[in-house]
Structure formats: C-alpha cells, structure tokens
C-alpha cells in the first residue's frame, strides 16, 4: 500500500460510514452532523481525482453553505430543548430490500462494465485555468443560465421565508 491508497481508503471509509450514519441514525441532529463528514470525505475523494478546485468548492458550498442551511432547518423546525428529536422510519423492511437490490445491481454493473478508460497522462498541477476558460467559452450559456437560476432561487426563498 502506498500513500495514495491509504489516503483513498481513509476518505472512502469516512464517506461511506458517515453517509450510513446520516441514513440510519434516529436522531436528526446526528444525521446532519454526519452529513458534514460525508461532504468532507467526498471533497477528499475529489482531491484524489485531481479535482482540486472542485474539492475547495465542495468544502465552501456544501460544508460551509448547504450544511449550515440544513442544520438551521433542523434547529428551526424542531424544538431542540425537547428530547424527542427522533425521526421515525417508514415501511423500512420492503424499502431495505428494494434499495439493497438496486445498490447491488448498481455496484455489480459499475464493476463489470468496461468503461472507456484510457491510460493516464501526466496532469497539470491545477485545473483552475482550464475550468475558468471553459466556463467562459464552451459553458458560457449554462454559466449565464445558472445565474438566473440562482436569482430565482434567492427571490423565491426570500418570498417564502419573509413575514409580510
């Protein structure tokens, strides 16, 4: 095992185990905090995949933004002083079976499919330059539309959340 592999397994275990805690924990606060570790683990995986910029973005937006939102959501909608912050599950057994089958099918497909893998070539140390260039050329239109999406999201959320 070299360092790359050790780091990979550390992040992989962190991601999957904390995601498991998110899903199976009975306490929604635990779930929310476990999700924090999942997002961090995913960011680590991005680094291993030569996606440094995405890793930082992941940390900033997911861990710094979406997570805070979710935790605020949990805090605002649940009476925290109340001990009962549990979230009951619904029709757990059939769902477990179906999801297990779906996941097994997916994993086996992922393993058995011959993906179009090419030999790795030397990569540049950072991808920011290329990403920036693509965002303003090939992905110019999605970039602009994303700004409208964000405007709509901001406007809609402000409308729904404010008191008249």
């Amino acid at each position: 095992m070299n360092y790359y592999e050790i780091i990979f397994y550390v992040f992989a275990v962190l991601t999957v185990v904390s995601a498991g805690v998110v899903v199976f924990s009975r306490n929604i606060i635990y779930s929310a905090f476990a999700l924090l570790f999942t997002f961090t683990g995913v960011a680590g995986i991005y680094v291993l995949l030569n996606a440094d910029f995405i890793a930082i973005t992941q940390l900033l937006i997911y861990v710094g933004g979406i997570m805070i939102l979710l935790i605020f959501g949990v805090m605002l909608t649940t009476n925290v002083t109340n001990v009962e912050i549990t979230t009951q599950t619904l029709k757990a057994l059939p769902a477990t079976i179906v999801v297990a089958i779906v996941s097994a099918l997916l994993v086996s497909t992922m393993v058995s499919t011959k993906w179009a893998v090419k030999d790795p070539i030397s990569v540049e140390s950072t991808t920011i330059n290329q990403i920036g260039e693509l965002l303003l050329t090939k992905y110019l239109l999605p970039f602009e539309i994303a700004s409208i999406v964000l405007l709509i999201a901001m406007m809609g959320a402000a409308f729904l959340a404010r008191k008249n």
Binding site: I28, S31, A32, L35, V42, I66, T87, K91
Partner: peptide, 29 residues
C-alpha cells in the same frame, strides 16, 4: 463503488424517512 453506495444510501433515506429535511439530505447524497 463509493458513488453507488452513496446513491443507495441516499435512495434509502428518500424512501424510508418521513422528515422532509432527512429526505433533503438523501437527495444531497
């Protein structure tokens, strides 16, 4: 494989949980 597992866990949260915020977390996964 990691992504498939995350997907499966997310799907599980979506179908079994009743709390809307939990379902949102599943979607994020």
């Amino acid at each position: 494989v990691i992504s498939s597992l995350l997907f499966g866990l997310g799907l599980f949260a979506v179908v079994t949980r009743r709390n809307a915020i939990m379902i949102l977390m599943g979607i994020e996964l």
